[in-house]
């Protein structure tokens, strides 16, 4: 209602399929979080985060396929820019999730301010992208 689908996709730099993947992974993740918080499982936080890790893997795989197809089609600049953006987003989100899991499991006692740094960097990148993208 606030944004059209086209505006969301342009701002976030994701395809519809990637957006769908993120939503589906988050649904499964939210169920696992509820089970974990209620003590319904003794499994670690790494297990709870598996859907999000799988989603990141799928997005990375999808991006590499798109890169190859764009490269073969001769659109090298677009291929490089799109892949660079996707890799940056996946790397930042993955760093955030791994450090958060380490903190929740008590492996490393890092401040939450430090754990959230990748998200702040991502927000900064999104701010720059918002100024560049032609809606």
């Amino acid at each position: 209602m606030i944004f059209t689908l086209k505006e969301v996709i342009k701002w976030l730099g994701l395809s519809i399929f990637e957006l769908w993947l993120h939503i589906m992974a988050f649904i499964v993740f939210s169920v696992l979080v509820a089970v974990k918080l209620e003590g319904g499982t003794t499994r670690s936080w790494w297990t709870v985060f598996i859907p999000l890790f799988v989603c990141d893997g799928c997005v990375a795989y999808f991006s590499s396929i798109v890169f190859i197809r764009l490269y073969l089609a001769g659109d090298r600049r677009l291929a490089a820019m799109r892949t660079l953006w996707s890799i940056s987003v996946v790397a930042l989100l993955l760093t955030y999730k791994i450090t958060l899991c380490q903190r929740l499991e008590g492996i490393r006692e890092i401040d939450y301010a430090v754990i959230h740094v990748p998200l702040f960097i991502l927000l900064k990148m999104l701010a720059v992208r918002a100024c560049q993208v032609d809606y």
């Binding site: 689908l5 519809i16 399929f17 957006l19 769908w20 939503i23 589906m24 988050f26 649904i27 939210s30 169920v31 979080v33 509820a34």
Partner: peptide
């Protein structure tokens, strides 16, 4: 978490329709 799941499932249905 029930309201969140309702919201996410709604969003998931919309996203599936877009795909």
């Amino acid at each position: 978490f029930i309201p969140l799941w309702i919201f996410l499932l709604g969003l998931g249905c919309d996203a599936t329709a877009w795909v």
